[in-house]
Nucleic acid binder design. Structure first.
Length: 418
RNA sequence: GGGGGCGUAGCGAAGCUGGUUUAUCGCGCCGGCCUGUCAAGCCGGAGAUCGCGGGUUCAAGCCCCGUCGCUCCCGCCA
């Protein structure tokens, strides 16, 4: 039989040599008479006879009759490809992406990510959502909030989309009712943290006929539970390599929903508890990363869940299109998973007149948003949606320390290559 | 933008309060030995202007200042 792959490791014992050959399915052992003229990571084809051998790694080995080098690797590897990747700096890993992904543990991150994207899409299709692909070039940046990247576009300037928000709503109003999109989103923010990327994969959905953000939360619970189950069954090896587990469906189902103001109080109490009865913790005024960690600690202890939903955010913290609950609060929510925000969503304004009324409070002018407003001018059902940060979910499932590890070719303030 | 930490060979690290001429270890690399390895083992070798610039000192990888890079925390961030 013939075996093809990369030379993972070589052990020469004089009269006999063992070559560990790696392909997408794993690593197997090849036995060669005498010495071998091979370098690590060379691509080879081995013809030989398979043999069961209790002394072989895995119990089976291939006794080589001939080895053909299809592509010889230079011997000056920039880092040990077959070693423990947690001992290699992130910069080295990212600078040498093609090589670092040959490491099974690093490559397994993206097997998990593929499952996440697959199940997100297939679950939504099975629930009558239609997949869409919308433009990432937008003509104006009046949506507000985050920074936008400018792009030369013939004789004018356009921007990279920070989210498909307006298009999602457009498609709901178009009569499609339920849509989703998996696509990159761009944020021109000069942050430099382990949880931010300037380009990330946003898994978006939007649906008609909801009453409040609670409908969305219930849907996200089912969706996430489905993703976790699939990762557990399809990516058992990746989970074991990273020493990670996914939440079971029951724990996801009982994830608490905490109103924003309560979350701040609970976080303050949790901080006191963490400080072992120390000084009174100061109450935070908004959901910051520390509050996210504290509220998750609370959720894990009180509800046995790694997931917690925070809803009823103050209207002033949310964009203009967010549907109000009352004078100060909105029908919006965040999902916090293992201490990190992975989702923001909510119900949206769907009545033309109400949108026109709310714009001035956010310093916006109707004439700058005519395309968007026209979506509602001739009737739009009550609706809402949310987005899951694909890299962040991947990161938190596997317990990666930096979200950049969960991006094949991350783009941050300083990195635009490879 | 503010603050902390770290920059020593291709990679990962050690180097005690400044003091021994050849700056140490593991992986990888080069040469040799070895017929059952499992991160193979053993012997030998190459490879480092100790990020860069300046300063203090009889003496700096180690202390000080500046600078660049990386990293973490905060801020910013639908």
């Amino acid at each position: 039989m013939e075996l093809k792959g990369w030379v993972h490791r070589i052990r020469e014992l004089g009269g006999v040599s063992f070559v560990m050959l790696r392909d997408r399915s794993g690593v197997g052992q090849v036995v060669v008479e005498g010495k071998v003229d091979l370098t690590l990571e060379s691509v080879v084809s081995v013809i030989g006879t398979p043999a069961a051998n209790a002394k072989a790694a895995g119990g089976v080995e291939l006794r080589a009759n001939s080895i053909e080098v299809l592509s010889r690797a230079e011997s000056d590897l920039p880092f040990p490809v077959n070693g423990d990747p947690t001992k290699i700096g992130l910069d080295v890993i990212l600078d040498n992406r093609a090589l670092s992904l040959r490491n099974p543990k690093l490559r397994s991150i993206f097997a998990v990510q593929a499952t996440i994207i697959d199940v997100f899409s297939s679950w939504l299709r099975a629930h009558d959502f239609t997949e869409m692909k919308t433009s990432k070039l937008i003509g104006s940046g009046t949506e507000g909030g985050t920074g936008l990247f400018e792009v030369d576009y013939f004789d004018t300037t356009v921007y990279l989309a920070q989210s498909p928000q307006f298009y999602k709503q457009t498609m709901v109003a178009s009569g499609m009712e339920r849509v989703f999109e998996v696509a990159p989103a761009y944020r021109a923010e000069k942050h430099d943290t382990p949880r931010h990327l300037n380009e990330y994969v946003s898994m978006d959905l939007e649906m008609a006929w909801i009453d409040s953000e609670r409908d969305l939360i219930e849907l996200e619970k089912e969706l996430l539970a489905s993703i976790f189950d699939a990762v557990a069954s399809r990516n058992a090896e990746a989970l074991s390599l990273w020493g990670a587990t996914v939440p079971d469906a029951e724990s996801v189902a009982r994830s608490p929903i905490v109103p924003h103001d309560d979350a701040l109080s609970l976080a303050a109490e949790e901080a006191v508890r963490a400080a072992a009865g120390g000084q009174a913790a100061k109450k935070a005024y908004e959901i910051n990363p520390e509050v996210e960690r504290l509220i998750c600690a609370w959720s894990a202890r009180e509800h046995g869940s790694d997931l917690v939903f925070i809803n009823e955010f103050p209207r002033r913290h949310r964009p203009f299109y967010t549907y109000p609950l009352d004078a100060t609060r909105s029908m919006s929510f965040d999902a916090i998973f293992r201490g990190l925000e992975i989702t923001t969503g909510g119900r949206r304004h769907n009545v033309y007149g109400e949108l026109l009324e709310v714009l001035p409070k956010f310093g916006l002018k109707a004439e700058d948003l005519t395309d968007y407003l026209n979506v509602f001018k001739y009737g739009c059902p009550p609706h809402g949606g949310f987005a899951i940060g694909c890299e962040r979910l991947t990161q938190k499932i596997l317990g990666l320390t930096n979200v950049k590890e969960a991006s094949l070719f991350p783009r941050d303030r300083k990195r635009v290559r490879p």
